[in-house]
């Protein structure tokens, strides 16, 4: 698979503080890449550096295999973007806003119609953009980003301000873009559930550092099942298990053992019962993605 976007030790420093710290992003063709991180983690700054809106302090950006600094215009020609909140001219209608983008990208009329249809704004296209609801502005922003049907689409928090129905709709739209139009999507969000439902690959950033990058499955495999054993006497059980080579921790009045197969579980149960400790419950517990995310970003402490 070709890397559509790659960054090499990309950093942005403001004064002494690193907003983005040596990030090596890699987005492959045909992916929906979810860029996940808490508020203020450096997502927007990174995306802005990919578009040349912010100049990196060090490191470089390579898009479509070309270095950004030397190929700005040819890269931008094949890139659509929506950064922070949608841009629009309030005194013009939705259609007129689209026409401005049409001029700048030099694309035919049918692109304008198609893009408006995709975001279902064609019935509101003659209304002033300033009078649009937030959700409609967001749709217009996506339509403007799509106008040239670019190879790469960069969306910063695309579902911000949309109602649940709108979120679902935009989600389905984004998921369909790689197959329908061959568009690679790079989107950011601070919501794990959002990324989980859209993305095929994930990058997790916190405090400017990329903490995880890989496929969605790779992230999910981090949530290995653990066995929780609840007994009448957890302290003694803990010691007994330890003697048998099982390392357990006591968590919420249960003993948690990592990596235990079926036979080991059966053995541990028999051993405890024979030692006179009643086993109340044995269950499999999975760490939620949410938990993994919080552990990775270290944000659970502040919650």
């Amino acid at each position: 698979m070709n890397a559509i976007v790659s960054t090499h030790n990309l950093s942005k420093r403001y004064g002494d503080a690193y907003r983005v710290n040596e990030v090596n992003l890699e987005v492959h063709e045909g992916e929906v890449y979810g860029f996940l991180g808490p508020n203020g983690a450096g997502k927007s700054t990174t995306l802005k550096m990919l578009l040349g809106l912010v100049k990196p302090s060090s490191g470089k950006v390579v898009v479509f295999g070309k270095e950004f600094d030397k190929n700005r215009l040819s890269i931008l020609r094949q890139t659509g973007s929506l950064i922070e909140s949608p841009s629009y001219y309030g005194h013009l209608t939705g259609l007129e806003n689209m026409r401005i983008m049409q001029r700048l990208h030099d694309v035919p009329d049918k692109n304008v119609c198609e893009a408006l249809k995709i975001v279902r704004l064609e019935n509101h296209k003659d209304k002033k953009a300033g009078l649009y609801s937030l959700g409609m502005k967001q749709r217009l922003g996506i339509a403007m980003a799509l106008i040239a049907f670019p190879k790469l689409l960069i969306l910063d928090e695309p579902t911000n301000g949309l109602d649940p129905a709108g979120i679902g709709e935009i989600r389905e739209l984004i998921k369909s873009l790689p197959q329908r139009y061959g568009i690679t999507v790079l989107l950011s969000s601070h919501l794990l559930s959002e990324i989980e439902q859209i993305a095929t690959s994930v990058g997790i950033i916190s405090d400017g550092k990329l903490l995880f990058q890989g496929s969605m499955e790779a992230l999910q495999s981090k949530s290995q099942p653990r066995i929780a054993i609840k007994t009448v006497d957890n302290e003694t059980a803990h010691v007994l298990l330890y003697r048998q080579g099982f390392h357990s921790v006591i968590e919420d009045d249960a003993l948690i053992v990592k990596e235990m197969n079926d036979e080991q579980t059966a053995f541990a149960n028999r051993m405890l019962v024979q030692a006179g400790i009643d086993v109340i419950r044995i269950e499999e517990r999975r760490k939620s993605l949410e938990r993994i995310f919080l552990e990775l970003t270290g944000k659970e402490k502040s919650l």
Partner: peptide, 11 residues
């Protein structure tokens, strides 16, 4: 309305 982003990312 953040139009500089739009203008400066146009080709």
């Amino acid at each position: 309305n953040k139009n500089w982003y739009q203008v400066m990312t146009a080709p």
